[in-house]
Amino acid sequence: MSVWSGYLTLILEGALVTLQLTIMGSALALVMAFLAGLGRLSRIFAVRALATTYIEFFRGTSIFVQLFWVYFVLPLAGLTLTPLQAGVLALGLNVGAYGAEVVRGAVKAIGREQTEACVALNLSRYQRMRYVILPQALPLMLPTFGNNAIELLKGTAVVSLISLTDMTFQAQVVRAQTGNTLIPFTMILILYFAMSWTISTAMRWLERRMSRNLDGVRS
């Protein structure tokens, strides 16, 4: 049993890396989602085109391909990244592209009459977004954002292939050293599930909280 405690520590260290990647990746994804999502709704053609290209490009290929590209090809262009930076960049940009579509969809789902009322009240475009549209659109985005965060968490397993010592990588190490596959892999499956369960529970809580202030605004 004492042998296993060492391996357990190894896997828990990996869990920490996975968590770190998930949190940093989600933060980047959130920023990209709003930039690109609102960018697609811009009045300026160039901004719209740029946002659309970004979204289609990152949705068109998988996280795996993007990660390898970032890790192996960018250094040739003079931009060398550590595995962690490459992981966060690829995960954040990939999931951000999916999030952008969520932002766009939620903003467009807010009725025209809200926009018209803002025009009637002489609010600026910024004020309209900040005080009227987004507070209503945000609760609509949350459930899908939760799913996207879980997709990102699942995507972090792929970074083990560029030698980042996340949970999956550590499980492989334990497998190589002990010859036992069942225990390490069952363990990380349970840990992954615990993390995704935490994300979905937290999102449900956040959603309840955010829509509480909107009582009576939306039918």
């Binding site: 879980i150 792929v158 499980a171 892999f185 499956l189 992954y192």
Partner: peptide, 20 residues
């Protein structure tokens, strides 16, 4: 459970654990 865990780990599981 399957939806909450990474496909990569599931693939490893099928490929390495089932032969046992």
């Amino acid at each position: 459970f399957i939806r909450g865990t990474p496909l990569l780990v599931q693939l490893y599981f099928i490929f390495y654990v089932l032969p046992d």
